[in-house]
Design a protein around this nucleic acid. Structure first.
Lengths: 158, 158
DNA sequence: ATAAATTTGTTCTATATGGAACAATAATTA
DNA sequence: TAATTATTGTTCCATATAGAACAAATTTAT
């Protein structure tokens, strides 16, 4: 008897869709970016905003919650919630800004740095896996192009 | 008096991060893909999974809910919920599969097609805006590279 | 033929998420 | 100076989301 469900080529839609390039970026987000956040949550116990705090504060020595929201393009309340959990977990410390009582400067702790290194190692591997499909020169081209796109995106108003 | 907050160059992190290419894909998702889904929700009243149903069924004449989940890499229960709402809204119709009582074939209706065209027109404009930062040859390169990446991603097990 | 395993679509549940409104503070304008 | 506007960080709330478990149907293995 014939197979009921012919094996459908699900990737046809990549070319058929009306906005093929944007669609593929979106597809990569669904297929890779979000599952990766999910892996981080499962394996390291941190949700997206929590990891983003580590990432930002591993690279800038002092930031406000608002800075992190802007850098990562996430809403402030998500960051705010994450800050409290990260303080409880001992991954961040917070000091009031003497010049502006509304603000608090955030810093990463030693424990936070270690956690960041662990998560980064995982993400570096994952990046290598994903981009293994490109040759070195393709990889270099992609790097240049995605840089332009990301820089442009960072100029868009929120 | 000096400005309290020196204007921070938030895009430094693009180069500093340990996985710069994957980070930028993720950033584009945060900065563009998800806000775009949000626009679609606000302007057209459809959430991500609901729009994905339209998109898939505008390009394949008949699919099961499971097919759509596979094509879009979304969880089945999200699609299942969306199917019911889209049936209620009259954008889809569903016919039981005579060969397999577990399944139902989904089709897009006339109204669904119109809605799809409206949303697509918006997304096409949005794509044009985003990629306007690339030259024609850059755009062509990017198209080729993102195609490879998306095709590779589609082979990853879920 | 029967049992075990898989597939589909669903509901239930817990959690992540982001908008809106808010109080406190600071900056800007009149 | 006084009044208005903007900013920061927060809480509240409604909703989107995905995992887990499930029943029904089908397929595969014994």
């Amino acid at each position: 008897m014939a197979r009921k469900s012919e094996s459908l080529d699900y990737s046809n839609i990549f070319e058929a869709v009306e906005f093929p390039d944007a669609y593929k970026v979106s597809y990569l987000a669904n297929a890779i970016v979000f599952p990766t956040y999910e892996d981080v949550r499962k394996d390291f116990g941190l949700v997206r905003a929590e990891y983003h705090l580590l990432l930002c504060l591993a690279h800038y020595s002092e930031l406000t919650a608002q800075d992190v929201a802007r850098i990562t393009r996430r809403p402030r309340n998500s960051i705010s919630r994450a800050v409290h959990r990260m303080l409880d977990l001992g991954f961040l410390k917070r000091v009031p800004d003497p010049d502006d009582a509304r603000r608090a400067k955030l810093q990463i702790t030693r424990e936070g740095k270690i956690m960041h290194q662990n998560i980064s190692a995982y993400l570096v591997d994952r990046e290598a896996e994903i981009f293994s499909v490109l040759s070195d020169t393709e990889r270099e081209s992609f790097r240049e192009l995605i840089r332009k796109l990301a820089n442009f995106a960072s100029t868009l108003k929120r």
